[in-house]
Amino acid sequence: MRERVVVRIESGDFDPGAEFRLLCERTAGAGGIGSFVGIVRGEAGGRAITAMTLEHYPAMTERAVRAIAEEAQRRWGLLGATVVHRVGRLVPGEQIVLVMAAAAHREPALAATSFLIDWLKTKAPFWKKEHFADGTAAWVAAQAADEAAAARWR
């Protein structure tokens, strides 16, 4: 049986088109696929960013992300889901995360996509550090808005 949930944590870039085609192939009969690609922004709070470093907890990360994807699969009866999250050093404009959810209809596909990115932000062991043009760096503070977005799926 083909895997419903595909999760990868990696430092290299990903190809959303290739991931989309792979998800299509393993979810024949899906009526729609929702997707989200996160991209590193070039500024934070009005300050130019030169790079972002994503730290993670290697022994825990894949398991935690897989649990989130399997939760989405159960809640919305997804035919398949793909989550790719990058770690390490990234520069503005680079892709950082991909989530895709395949379902019979658009509503579960779109809802599951929102759920996946909301929970990835607050429940998977990743921490972002921003490096600024003046040579300083700062850890990204957890946002109350992100906690609230994750909480609406309880």
Binding site: G38, L120, T122, K123, A124, W127
Partner: peptide, 12 residues
């Protein structure tokens, strides 16, 4: 046990 401590997570 392996016990890990960390700040609130900021992935995605």
């Amino acid at each position: 046990d392996e016990v890990a401590f960390f700040p609130p997570m900021t992935g995605g």
